[in-house]
Design a protein around this nucleic acid. Structure first.
Length: 127
DNA sequence: TTTCTTACA
DNA sequence: TGTAAGAA
């Protein structure tokens, strides 16, 4: 991991700073954590400490919400991304190319952002 | 002062 | 999601 990545992953921001940076309420920020969308560290007194990566994550969540996605929809987006990353890691037993990954993700975006049925996202065969 | 958790006329 | 209450 590069030094840059390490710095971005250092949790040094209290929720108050995150509120100003994201223009979200503490309530909302904590709620996203409850939903497993972000997992900030805790310091001494059980206070949440966020990293720059967390900030990006939260801003991303905010954008998705503005685009009409609900929490469950966002969860699926991240689930999909992680799923694709895993497959990418086992590049040998799968036949997915980078362009395939990009296409699948694109498809998911349109699918999910268009107010999809909660259970219609498991039909991602192998193209 | 700031943040945490819990709960809801 | 907001807000109040009590604790840390």
């Amino acid at each position: 991991m590069s030094e840059k990545e390490l710095r971005r992953s250092l949790s040094v921001l209290p929720i108050g700073t995150v509120m100003k940076l994201t223009d979200l309420s503490a309530r909302q920020i904590r709620y996203y954590e409850e939903q497993g969308l972000v997992m900030p560290e805790r310091n001494d007194g059980n206070r949440r400490m966020y990293s720059l990566n967390d900030i990006d994550r939260i801003l991303e969540i905010k954008d998705y919400l503005d685009d009409g996605l609900n929490i469950s929809g966002i969860k699926e987006v991240y689930k999909k991304q992680q799923q694709l990353e895993d497959e990418k890691k086992n590049h040998q037993d799968t036949q997915l190319t980078d362009s395939d990954v990009r296409r699948i993700l694109e498809d998911e975006f349109l699918h999910i952002s268009g107010l999809m049925p909660p259970s219609s996202t498991f039909n991602n065969q192998k193209l």
